[in-house]
């Protein structure tokens, strides 16, 4: 049998305690143990960004983080940031600009873009493109995503943000 460990953590504001196999990665933990299926598995070696989640306030690859590592940590997923309304303006911009097609990369893209919105509120197009280069999208060609993030940044600068 798998070696297991017990972890306690906060996921989207809720206290969670689970027995997890030592080899289980964070995104599989979120998807399989907690049914938080908004985070997706695209490559399992840290390249595509579909599994991007927030760990103690910073985005990480859910496939390169072990569940056993998040004992005591705070985790936020697309479900969590949607529920709090933190990224409502960004999601509205994605919808208006059709910045999601198949939607498989989108949760990870939103998580990464949400970080950019806070760490670099003055980002221009080239910086947005650079920042999001760790999240692959095969459908859109990226331009609509860059537009949506640019619109959100401008909206927040103009005082439209509630965060």
């Amino acid at each position: 049998m798998d070696e297991t460990t017990v972890i306690s953590c906060t996921v989207n504001g809720e206290a969670v305690e689970e027995i997890v196999p030592a080899r289980l990665n964070l995104v599989d933990f979120l998807r399989e143990k907690l049914d938080l299926t908004g985070s997706h598995v695209g490559c399992e070696h840290g390249v595509c960004g579909a599994c991007t989640v927030r760990l103690d306030g910073v985005i990480v690859r859910g496939c390169l983080t072990l569940a056993a590592q998040v004992n005591g940590a705070t985790i936020e997923t697309i479900e969590g940031v949607t529920a709090t309304g933190e990224v409502a303006d960004l999601q509205e911009a994605f919808l208006a600009r059709n910045a999601a097609q198949c939607g498989f990369c989108t949760p990870g893209m939103v998580m990464s873009a949400a970080e950019l919105l806070t760490v670099n509120p003055d980002a221009g197009r080239a910086e947005i493109r650079d920042f999001l280069s760790g999240n692959y999208c095969r459908c859109t060609g990226y331009q609509a995503i860059i537009d949506a993030v640019e619109t959100t940044l401008a909206g927040r600068k103009n005082g439209g943000s509630t965060t």
Binding site: T37, G38, S39, H40, G103
Partner: peptide
């Protein structure tokens, strides 16, 4: 006009087969 199914995809509420 916006896509009726895009909203839930952007909110991470899609149902892909592995879900």
């Amino acid at each position: 006009v916006p896509r009726p199914n895009a909203k839930r995809l952007i909110a991470g509420r899609g149902t892909f087969v592995d879900d």
